[in-house]
Simulated assay, not measured.
Amino acid sequence: MPSFDIVSEIDSVELRNAIDNSNRELATRFDFRNVEATFDLKESTAKLSAEDDFQLNQMMDILRGNLAKRGVDANAMEIKDAIHSGKNWYKDVEFKQGIDSLTAKKLVKSIKDQKLKVQASIQGEKIRVTGKKRDDLQQVIAWIKSADFEQPFQFNNFRD
């Protein structure tokens, strides 16, 4: 019976490269000359620090551009509020890994609402979709790509 898995993952190497490229771009930009501004990556959280709130917004634009160049979906970002501490401003950007239970339930319900002959089941941080026909599974993939769930999904482990 054909099946595939729906997952939400970010390539950590590409994320690291995007952060490094953003730091390099900060070093070359004229408007950030003599300004303490950095991007730091810890696990799946990027910490932006700058001297002004406006500069944080510019840094977010730089980060989004570099993520797009590296093929990392910007929908995976969860942007926290800016914090002013001392003379610097800080902003945390968390990158979502895996499908949380609320999103998984919403996704399974919407797959069932499509009235296709497939079964969707939650298995940890992924969703397994099985069906009798490969065409039904491909319709599910096409529908999920067109729907907006505010999180990027990948499809792997496709089996006939």
Rank of each mutant, 00 (worst) to 15 (best):
N17F: 13
L116F: 09
M60V: 03
I62Y: 00
R64Y: 03
K105N: 08
S110D: 14
G86W: 08
D20G: 08
Q97P: 03
S12T: 12
I144K: 01
E25T: 02
K115S: 10
T45S: 13
T28M: 07
S110G: 07
I111V: 12
F4L: 11
Q123D: 15
A76K: 00
T38D: 13
E125W: 00
K69G: 11
G86K: 07
D53P: 11
K145A: 04
N34T: 10
A104S: 07
D160H: 04
G86T: 08
Q55F: 01
Q123M: 14
G124H: 09
M1T: 06
G124Q: 11
K133Y: 15
L63D: 03
N66W: 08
A147C: 09
F158D: 07
R128F: 00
Q154W: 04
V13Q: 15
Q58K: 13
F158N: 05
A104N: 03
I99K: 02
D113L: 12
E150I: 01
K91T: 14
T28S: 12
S110F: 12
Q138W: 04
S8Q: 07
R70D: 12
A142G: 07
T38E: 13
T45R: 14
S110P: 11
F39W: 06
F95N: 11
V108E: 03
D92G: 09
G98C: 05
S85T: 14
S101A: 09
G71N: 09
H84F: 10
N157Q: 12
V118S: 00
F4T: 03
S12I: 12
F155H: 07
G98I: 01
R128L: 05
V93E: 02
K87H: 13
L26R: 07
V72Q: 01
N17Y: 13
E125P: 04
D52M: 04
G131D: 01
S22K: 00
K132W: 14
I19S: 01
E14V: 11
V140T: 06
S44R: 14
S146D: 13
E150V: 05
A37N: 05
K69Y: 09
